[in-house]
Write a protein that binds this DNA or RNA. Structure first.
Lengths: 328, 328
DNA sequence: TTGTAAGCGTTATCAG
DNA sequence: CTGATAACGCTTACAA
């Protein structure tokens, strides 16, 4: 592959001159510029970004570590992040940790070695201490690690409140919340806190069930929902903390001949596209996924440029009503 | 950030020695090795992969260009590809072209500049000529560009056959196929060819409807399905060429009070996880997504190492029967 | 307006 | 067993 030297030699100028026309810096005669452009074309020259990165001591890559891109929330987050990063001159290095601490640690290590410009952490199986000496542009998604590490989330507590309140407003008498494993240090757990608070303050009967640790074996969702219906057949409103979980509620309810929304109201979380693909469509708490991803990038970008950043970044949620909670 | 020189200086050895212990090459006394490791630890040294790449004239990145990661098929493909590539020492550079030719071209250009080891193209809005002078390790997904460019797909024709035959076996009298835009040069169009062939040879009435060019505005799926039911209310079997499309069929059918599978059989395509999340669950043609992604990587890997490769790579599909086609 | 040369952090070659 | 030095492809002082 042609180098800047090849271009310089054939165009009969110095490498500096070629570099100048490449970066449009300094004064160059139109004649020289033209000649250089022509030879670049002729040689099919593509400036080596690796060499540039070496000089800059930084690549143009943003690292994203998430549990699993095939989960609708993360796939949409990834789409928007990549789009926005690219508009700002950065490419996306994607890593799926599968929630394995070893992989996560290894990925962080790899990113340092590759001198990525910053790391967006959406997977958090590591101890707080692992993050503290990281000393790298970083932002965590949905987990508060320490005061020194900026985080980003949408308003989980408000989301839990809105969801629970909606079930109550629909006239539910006994409500349930199914959610990810509560022993994990995720901000998403606040949804459940809100659920508990609102149910309690309204004096309404409730039950909470969380998954096993590994959140992405969807088979357990079905088991969990069946167990819920089995142990609490009188539940008439369910708040699931993801749209995927909500779909399992719909699925199991259907097999038990429980009519949604007539016998049972259901509300999901995230408001991924997927919530509109099911029948009935899923009422959901909308996380502003695109805004979240863009803000994640901005927080990294500011750190790269040593600008001041907010350490706590919480975006508002909105309730999106659909068929699973429609009144008759 | 510490460099190999810092380590060498503090450990009191030469950079060559440090490089040797780093790469475990040549003979080193245990004492020296130990000292070097200690100082690396002390300085929190992370070898700069950018410098290594510059020397190797190649990065450890594999570029993936797809229309949109948030589509279930691509998100699963991406997950598996990243996992497999990482096991083999490569990282994934993810790009969403959104099916825009300009973006796609720009991404290819960017990848050359970043000296990615190879490119996996799952988005194909460009002319054949754009690919021909590419001269780069590459493989295309679901599109046959030219004899000189290796491609990969699952057996689309067989998939179309199996799907259509199933509808017929279920006793359908008039069947429909809804699919992506047929004017695009995608191998997926063979599914529709097979549908036409099987329907014809069985002397059964059929109708084919394709989407507008931009495949990822899901709103149009609903419009398309409504149009189908409107113009052909007597259709009793539908073959949708993605699980997402199939979900829209279920959705619209439900709103029209058509019972699935009683009044209407539906079969999707891809067999993404998503096909099991809906109620009723979607019968689908399974593409071996993980095998596809791994083979895509292998084809790139062999090109990098100048090994011989197959130019035509077609993997078998399988029929997965679920509720949308179950007989009474 | 253009050129020379040093340096970014590695590894490879050659020498000791 | 260890070290000096050139090279990878580029940008940037500093000169001219």
């Amino acid at each position: 592959m042609a180098t800047i030297h090849d271009v310089a030699e054939i165009a009969g100028v110095s490498v500096t001159t070629v570099s100048r026309v490449l970066n449009n810096r300094g004064y160059i005669s139109d004649k020289t510029r033209k000649k250089v452009f022509e030879t670049m074309q002729a040689l099919n020259y593509h400036p080596n970004e690796i060499a540039r990165s070496l000089l800059r001591k930084q690549s143009n890559l943003i690292g994203l570590i998430i549990p699993n891109v095939s989960h609708p929330f993360f796939s949409e987050f990834t789409l928007h992040l990549e789009t926005y990063a690219y508009q700002n001159g950065f490419k996306l290095l994607l890593c799926n940790s599968l929630s394995e601490p070893d992989k996560e640690k290894d990925y962080i290590e790899m990113m340092r070695k590759n001198r990525v410009a910053g790391i967006i952490m959406g997977s958090h199986t590591l101890d707080v201490s692992e993050y503290l000496n990281l000393n790298y542009p970083i932002v965590t998604l949905d987990r508060k690690i320490a005061d020194s590490i900026p985080y980003l989330s949408s308003d989980n507590y408000a989301g839990g409140q809105a969801a629970t309140q909606l079930l109550i407003d629909c006239g539910c008498k006994k409500i349930a919340n199914i959610c990810g494993n509560l022993s994990l240090p995720q901000l998403a757990n606040e949804r459940t806190s809100a659920f508990r608070d609102i149910a309690t303050s309204n004096g309404i009967e409730y039950v909470i069930m969380d998954t096993e640790t590994n959140v992405f074996e969807y088979g357990q969702y079905e088991t969990l929902v069946r167990k819920l219906f089995d142990e609490h057949p009188d539940v008439d409103g369910i708040f699931a903390t993801s749209d995927v979980m909500a779909s399992y509620v719909i699925k199991v309810a259907r097999s038990l001949n429980r009519q949604i929304p007539n016998d049972l109201k259901v509300i999901g979380y995230d408001d991924t596209q997927f919530a509109t693909w099911t029948a009935p469509s899923i009422t959901s708490i909308k996380q502003p996924i695109e805004e979240l991803s863009n803000l994640a990038f901005d927080i990294i970008y500011k750190q790269i440029n040593e600008e001041a950043i907010e350490m706590h970044n919480v975006l508002p949620i909105t309730l999106v009503e659909r068929e699973t909670t429609s009144l008759l």
